[in-house]
Design a protein around this nucleic acid. Sequence first.
DNA 1: GCACCCATGTAACCAGTTACATGATTTG
DNA 2: CAAATCATGTAACTGGTTACATGGGTGC
Lengths: 180, 180
Amino acid sequence: MELNATSRVILGMLGRRPMSGYDIKSFVDRSTRFFWAASYGQIYPELRRLADVGLIEGTEEPQGGRKRISYRLTAAGRRAHRDWLAAPPQIHESRDESLLKIFFSDFAGPEATIAALQAKRDQHAAIAERLRAIGPQHKPPEDSALLALRFGIAFNDFIVAWCEREAETARARSGQPSVA
Amino acid sequence: MELNATSRVILGMLGRRPMSGYDIKSFVDRSTRFFWAASYGQIYPELRRLADVGLIEGTEEPQGGRKRISYRLTAAGRRAHRDWLAAPPQIHESRDESLLKIFFSDFAGPEATIAALQAKRDQHAAIAERLRAIGPQHKPPEDSALLALRFGIAFNDFIVAWCEREAETARARSGQPSVA
DNA sequence: GCACCCATGTAACCAGTTACATGATTTG
DNA sequence: CAAATCATGTAACTGGTTACATGGGTGC
């Protein structure tokens, strides 16, 4: 029963605590979004499929007249999630337009390379800032989730520093003195 | 005339030199693949579309009885490419299964977190190695392409070091002494 | 002669986003 | 009472990969 990409994050989230589809979506948006997104169009059909194959089970828990289905892992679901965790990671895709621009930038001259480096710098500085902002709000929920957050921050900070350094040397090379 | 994602890499490649669809595909596979992939199923239809809207033009240059269409940028294509380079980067997507595993790893206990860190480390060490291998083969073709390569290497090296550091502290925390 | 590379192209499929429909509840 | 939020769900679309079909050229 080949699990697809979205089911990984669903199983993972339900491994933390029972959740509704809505909960999963909003939690993903506040946590894994930067390296693993999911939309309603994926989540709801996938929840049904996972329930059909017995990896999760849903119980209706309406809040007043507002319907709500809370899902949790079954024993088989816990096993599947554990097995996935133990298996070597496969997927590592990225589409990085800022890096593509750097790659091609000398088509428009050395100033374009510097501009592309600065644009990338700014982009990652903004992400690092957003990641820092979500840090304190969740008080230590689970260790490894915070570890992933720390990774995101460290990693974006690294890119900011790298871009600054390279822009500096590129600026120096193209004759313009560095700071003033 | 909204350009799609694949057309960016096509325009960029043709900005370096005239190429066939086959050339583009194999060059992408040896260069931008890690941060911007493209498949034949995207490239060939897109070449036709770009030619239809006048951003590129193709000339048939059969090599013996083997057919071959070489494409190059038109003036409009050069303009479009330059405009794109100058615009702020938008797309920055990633799907990182190794980080998702770190995120969820404490579901299976602290040893699982350490294992996930090591798995991520190994993955990026392998990528860094592959990037280093392609470095010298292309002797400085264009500066900014090499800059992007250097970015890939630095960035993967950083992740390797980060994972090692975190695995170390995690190991120390879980009682097992670090090296021996 | 076989395997492999050059070269173009498409059909079938899969994954995923966007935008909408629907409706209850809460909050200002 | 309006707007935001909770909540589920789907249809239409977009983007993309995989796998195949086709055929000539090159090297062993």
